[in-house]
Design a binder for these strands. Structure first.
Lengths: 199, 199
DNA sequence: CGGAACTTTGAGTTTCCTCAAAAAATGTGG
DNA sequence: CCACATTTTTTGAGGAAACTCAAAGTTCCG
């Protein structure tokens, strides 16, 4: 599944199963991953509200979506105040995650950033009900493009986390061995999530 | 005006006049500015919906706010679908700005980042109706904390933009002399804003 | 006028990057 | 199951970007 930037029929959808990610690119190809999309996430609201999507979305695993029609959104707000409150709740949750990510990319060191990201994804997966799999299905290139680092430096940084026994990398995926250790390295207290609406 | 992180009576407000900014800090004091708040902006939605504010807000100039009560939000969604749509529109606009900022901090060089930020603020000021003043009331420390750079390197970077005749720095503020030049340095096409709701 | 905040400069260091290439894992077709 | 192409991970070396430390100018404000 790939939905690309500038695409005019901006889609609004929720992820039912699978992993995906949102990203933007500069004209010369530099790519920044903005956030990851897990089951229960609402993706593309901005595009739906504003008219053009200005980021792209790509799947990491086979993914099942529930697609909404853009023009249903006005109707939703008119007739379903509870649901539209939930939509806004999810939007504000996404914004909170972006705030955290921006803090991380702007102010944390490479090692702290990597630890933060993997802890973040670990807890998101858990929160999305993917309890069984501690496997985060991303390549080191994805990590690099999320953290704003080169692939080489990312590799050397992840290696340190591996050597510290915090993670293990295999099969194009990261296995988190010690979530608390990651939190400590990152200087983070973990997610402060309470109960959330499902759409 | 300062509202601080973790404050429990999370506030929701719109800026009526003045400049402010949202930021987060790490425990050792490193600060990341997340976005700037100009007249017409809705600030603190996430806090209002989720219960605790997890960023702080500080004023750059004397600022007038219109504060909403948090518990009015449910009522708003129930009885004013048009307005609640607008609230969500503004939330998605904020998210779009964060996406851009994250791309910038993650993937642009120091010079590109600085140019992007100043162009971004220039167009935001214009969009907020502050047409007269090309003055952006921030110190170089604010720029550094927005771009994720040190104050020293920020100074040297801004100096290059000054020497290129793109900006002028005086009175703890930046004057934009050549917006198009900034866009070119940043490799950006400027804002794609259409009409927006006022709350 | 004096103190504080802000801007500027220089020097040396660290972090991260690019280039290049090898090693390992993965996927495909026979 | 094997041979081969592709993608991903790993390593080394040298260079560029950004950082810290330190200090001197400047501007602002009471």
């Amino acid at each position: 599944m790939i939905l690309s930037e500038g695409s005019h029929s901006a889609q609004l959808f929720t992820v039912l199963s699978g992993w995906a990610f949102r990203f933007k690119t500069l004209e010369d190809g530099r790519r920044q991953i903005l956030n990851f999309c897990l089951p229960g996430d609402l993706v593309g609201l901005q595009g739906s509200i504003i008219g053009v999507m200005d980021h792209s979305v790509e799947a990491l695993t086979p993914t099942v979506l529930c697609v909404f029609q853009r023009d249903q959104l006005g109707e939703l707000f008119k007739n379903h105040p509870g649901l539209s409150f939930d939509v806004t709740w999810l939007a504000s949750r996404e914004e909170r995650m972006l705030d955290e990510n921006l803090l991380s990319v702007g102010r944390r060191s490479a090692l702290e950033r990597a630890a933060y990201l993997l802890a973040f994804l670990f807890y998101r997966a858990r929160g999305a009900g993917l309890i069984g799999s501690k496997r985060i299905p991303i390549t080191q290139q994805h990590v690099a493009d999320t953290l704003g680092l080169s692939i080489v430096h990312t590799n050397k940084t992840l290696r340190k986390l591996s050597e510290g026994g915090l993670i293990r990398w295999h099969d194009r995926a990261c296995e988190v061995l010690d979530p608390d250790g990651l939190l400590k390295v990152a200087g983070w207290h973990g997610p402060t999530e309470s109960k959330r609406p499902l759409i």
